[in-house]
Design a protein around this nucleic acid. Sequence first.
DNA 1: TAGATTGTTAATCGATTAACAATC
DNA 2: TAGATTGTTAATCGATTAACAATC
Lengths: 218, 218
Amino acid sequence: MISDSISLAVIRRLPKYHRHLGSLLKDEITRTSSTHLSSLLGFTPSQIRQDLHNFGIFGHLGRGYDVEKLYIAIGEILGLDYSYNTVIIGAGNLGQSLASNRDFEKHNLRIKAAFDKSPEKIGQEIHGIEVLDIRHLDHFVRYQKIEVGILCTNKESAQQMADRLIVNGIKAIWNFSPTDIVVPKHIILENSNLIESLFLVSYKFNDRKSDLIHSLSL
Amino acid sequence: MISDSISLAVIRRLPKYHRHLGSLLKDEITRTSSTHLSSLLGFTPSQIRQDLHNFGIFGHLGRGYDVEKLYIAIGEILGLDYSYNTVIIGAGNLGQSLASNRDFEKHNLRIKAAFDKSPEKIGQEIHGIEVLDIRHLDHFVRYQKIEVGILCTNKESAQQMADRLIVNGIKAIWNFSPTDIVVPKHIILENSNLIESLFLVSYKFNDRKSDLIHSLSL
DNA sequence: TAGATTGTTAATCGATTAACAATC
DNA sequence: TAGATTGTTAATCGATTAACAATC
């Protein structure tokens, strides 16, 4: 059923479904099946059927799924039809690179402004997005009805900036700063911590090395 | 036991342990306990003891854990003492922002060069990292003993560039390109797909909205 | 029709949490 | 000592996989 809360494990797979279904659509492939998707995505056919079942998405007995319908349904579940007003907090390298990411626009993320405290940055324009004085943040968020804040500050300012966003009515925070932030339960929080990903690369690397040592000593 | 492969769920928690233990160390707090860490990290005390047990890390009965020892032990498990030679493929906005990320250096990721095909970019320098002609990639990777490739290309070039890296002896690929790539089993692959994270924000947003509708209709 | 493939229940697997004797 | 907290086993919970009747 759609209503009961669906596990994060399932949700995390949805973007992958969506992406691959998009490719199939481009290639004008109109029908697919759990076995076919399994070969593309690496999930088991059984898991794929379970996943779709969670959302009340149905195929056709004996004939599989309609690619376009499935693509649209998953897009709707992901809320890809809805447009978000956002601001970027911190116009450092990361903030600038996110500001100039064309893929965000394509996916309905409208970056209305970037904010920074550094005088050299204020007034600059990054791919059409203006860098404003951080002092104007509160007013801007409140009156431009900004819903998502993209946090790209250093770890010292992160929590403080998050708090300011929340006070001014933000609904979701996408946190790229290299620290954890604490938010009230009703605020949506998504962390994209680059250093954590780097540590994962590092772990796998290290693990692989000790595997080799192991096999040598056999 | 350390030798038996540890689940990814546990590994993904390690960077968080490491980060918070680092803070404790800075604050000159020398002892901690699973209950104390639980309050900081949000994992249950039981889970924390299980996690550490996995790695053969031991505290003291009745007295908890030594912060510094724990910090060092987790750092070692993550392989943070090892230095990696890396290159960035694609000096677009994302590639440039990663190239100028000072945190990477701090964590032993040595970016030796960035590569691009665009004549305007070749020869530029980003925070001391030179942008080289993509034609020189193969030779560079091979003779500079590059171990990690950071993939920041568009989706069209991603697989092809990954293949070139692999042929020339790369050991790990950190993929920021907006697509899946396929690599042989012995190659380490870590995906940091921004669009997937964006979709997750979008899903949570959408889900929250329908929650509200639900509660209104009660 | 016969082969393919679904939706769905049951079985399995794995991860988290609870419990508690041991003991600092 | 008594309170605190570990290491570790057992219980629980949740997610994945297997199985298969239904049927296009």
